[in-house]
Design a protein around this nucleic acid. Sequence first.
DNA 1: GGAAGATTGTTGTTGACGACAACAATTGCC
DNA 2: GGCAATTGTTGTCGTCAACAACAATCTTCC
Lengths: 168, 168
Amino acid sequence: MTASAARADTRLSPRKRAGNGPARRIDADEIGLDALVGHAGYAVRRFQIWIFQDFIKTLGDVDIRPTQYSVMTVIGANPGLSQMAVAKRLGIERARLVHLLDSLEQRKLVKRIKSKADRRSHALHLTAQGETALAKFKRLAAEHERHVEAKIGKENRERLLQILAGFT
Amino acid sequence: MTASAARADTRLSPRKRAGNGPARRIDADEIGLDALVGHAGYAVRRFQIWIFQDFIKTLGDVDIRPTQYSVMTVIGANPGLSQMAVAKRLGIERARLVHLLDSLEQRKLVKRIKSKADRRSHALHLTAQGETALAKFKRLAAEHERHVEAKIGKENRERLLQILAGFT
DNA sequence: GGAAGATTGTTGTTGACGACAACAATTGCC
DNA sequence: GGCAATTGTTGTCGTCAACAACAATCTTCC
């Protein structure tokens, strides 16, 4: 079922089939994308939507979204980071990180500790509760990753990670 | 360097390096992502952001965003489609497509023609101006695609398209 | 040592986008 | 002929990226 793509570009162009309206019912599966096939951005966008939806669903019970997971993972692996450091590392704006941390702090998963070295900044840590929660999140994330494998194949997933390793 | 994924889970944890704050200046490039590396979703998200930004910049002079481009491409290749058909094909909601078409119609690139076969629906067409404009957009999109090649390599781009072909 | 400029966290706004819900007009079905 | 489904539209809500402005604080430079 997944192997049925990658043609489509070389089908006889359906151009100007209809004068001012479709005479026949169009099945929406048989619409030629033409130039759209072959655009990396389009494929990546569609895939990203799919993968995020599966992540959100798989971690739906614990109510954790991909960005929240990435923030907790980075803090868990590097306790004491400032908000700027986390934002820069994850490529999110510090303005946005404020709300993310507000939410995570309300849920007692993360805490902001005033840094004594630089009184402008906060040192970010997971709470004890946050540590055990993150462990559970990681198990669910691993399950999500298996869904990805099931979707595109184990070796394709690894090739993908290899190709995109420069963006992490 | 690109082969360095898929371990990550088994590195000695740098946990608890800092008591309540970073003693040393952290360079934000040397922050361990640990479990984040190895997550397909994270890599794909970062890549998608990069690729969209390049697309928007490359087509900045003509003020066309990726979604607008995809809509015009589909209409150009399949004149007379209804809004539902386009929405379903591109995976966008029909509610959202309304605004996209409003914008494109104001710019005289697309026109909605009342279908006589089904008076509920509109047959979508490019205007003459839209046709020539789309040709220019496609040239710029091809230039963008070359940027992608330059970023990840020609053969990696093609492998990527192959892997994700099922999502187009 | 003090003024000038940079950095950090915060608040706010804007716009693109996905997800829903409701609605009128129209079509298809039984 | 009547009732469910479809199509386009309008609206709301929440997520997210991109900016801009601001107070507090640090750094730099004279």
